[in-house]
Design a protein around this nucleic acid. Sequence first.
DNA 1: GGAATGATTCTCT
DNA 2: GAGAATCATTCCG
Length: 200
Amino acid sequence: MVKLQSDFYLDEDVTKIARLLLGKNLMVRCGNQVSGGTIVETEAYSGAVDKASHAYKNKLTERTRIMFETGGRAYVYLCYGIHHLFNVVTNKEGFPDAVLIRALQPLDPPVTSNHSYRNKTGEQVPLTNGPGKLSKALGIDLKHNGMDLRGENIWIEDTGHPVSKNNIVYSKRIGVDYAGDDAKLDWRFYLKDNQWISKK
DNA sequence: GGAATGATTCTCT
DNA sequence: GAGAATCATTCCG
């Protein structure tokens, strides 16, 4: 496995990176334990032109500052006072783009037992099929905000198995209906027929 | 300092 | 399908 290098994150087309992240592995170290999964669902947010983005119109605040930095870092924030949402910062310094990771597929064999479990009927129940849930499963919280994705605590690695274009589904983003016309953009990407995506 | 709010999820109907 | 939980961040005064 090879960690993704900085060139990957610097592309100016955030939707392209959102598509390329599908099939890659997101890994998090918690103490001596490493957990993670394969990315199967993402959403793109482009600050300068996207009403749904926290950095819309290049709005620079204490929180969004991390999005303006050079691609390749983690942007984590608390939503609804309950859920931590994990994003990958992309593009060059000064361009506030990010990709929200919405769902992971547990590794096989699983590296930890936190990502899914089998209920009494033997059915596999995922704990990583949603942006809030996967952060909880991996132990991601505000302390990861701003971390370099090539470090030892959190990183993304190439599995060597690129996803073919035919297996990527495009759709409207979720939970951003307030963003007017930008809510209609097909900036959500997920793997076709994958059972681990968040919904719909 | 204080009020408003959301890139969600769970529970109950 | 509707409503609650719950708090860091933002905006206003």
